[in-house]
């Protein structure tokens, strides 16, 4: 075993020790009291949280993926920089500011939260869709066209399968960020687990804070892992093997 692997092991073990210590501390101090005592309220907040994440990221997915595909077609290539720069700009604005702006349009409530999180999720998906499609070997596309594939066939049989891992990585990033940022929806009356987190901060009460924050974290990690599993199904075997082989050299 080389020193790199040893260090990786030490970091891994230290990480798990910290996690276990954290849970031992929270459980022994009865910090999940809110979940245990108000399971209905917890279910309601969790449901609302998921609702905001689900709607905003699905809308972002349905916009950014087709947009990324269009912006890599020869016809629309020249507009790519406008969209990517606009999306970049959107990303530089703090998420709280976007929430405030959305509230200016739609008032207080869940709609404003969904709008803000939708805007916030666009960039990672758009960026990775474009990057993935651009990284497709031009020789493969040329060969495909030369053999008589239609542009649609080239897109679905060659480009999308080859761009899949980059695209899924973008979607994963967007949704995981989204889950964390949805905690802020409370600030504009959007609800979700942010309600307990901010209550905990305001009341200086760790039982609220932990009962809200830990489920959000677990949710984010679960979704992250779920996407890693999904990648195994959506990225063609040949591409995965090739990536693995390339990483090994």
């Amino acid at each position: 075993m080389n020193s790199k692997a040893v260090i990786a092991w030490i970091v891994k073990i230290a990480f798990w020790v910290v996690i276990i210590a954290f849970f031992w501390w929270t459980i022994s101090n009865n910090m999940y009291a809110q979940i245990l005592e108000n399971p209905e309220q917890f279910a309601g907040l969790l449901g609302r949280h998921l609702q905001i994440v689900l709607i905003s990221s699905s809308l972002a997915l349905l916009t950014a993926v087709p947009a990324g595909i269009l912006l890599t077609r020869p016809k629309f290539k020249k507009y790519e920089w406008i969209f990517v720069n606009t999306a970049n700009l959107g990303q530089t604005i703090p998420s709280i500011a976007i929430l405030a702006l959305a509230m200016g349009f739609l008032g207080i409530g869940i709609q404003a939260a969904i709008l803000a999180l939708y805007v916030y999720s666009l960039l990672p998906i758009l960026q990775n869709t474009i990057a993935g499609l651009k990284s497709v070997d031009p020789a493969a596309k040329d060969a495909a066209a030369g053999m008589g594939m239609t542009p649609t066939q080239i897109l679905f049989k060659i480009e999308l399968p080859m761009a899949a891992s980059s695209m899924i990585a973008g979607i994963r990033t967007a949704i995981v960020l989204n889950i964390g940022t949805t905690a802020l929806a409370y600030l504009i009356g959007g609800g979700g687990l942010g309600v307990w987190i901010f209550t905990g901060i305001q009341l200086f009460d760790n039982t609220y804070l932990i009962s809200g924050a830990v489920p959000v974290t677990i949710l984010a990690i679960t979704v992250d892992q779920l996407f890693r599993v999904m990648q195994l199904f959506l990225v063609p075997k040949g591409i995965r093997k090739a990536q693995k082989a390339a990483a090994a050299t």
Binding site: D137, A139, A140, D142, A143, M147, P161, M162
Partner: peptide
């Protein structure tokens, strides 16, 4: 049609 960089499809 055959090209220099073979253009085989890595996903197939």
């Amino acid at each position: 049609y055959v090209i220099q960089s073979n253009g085989l499809f890595p996903n197939m």
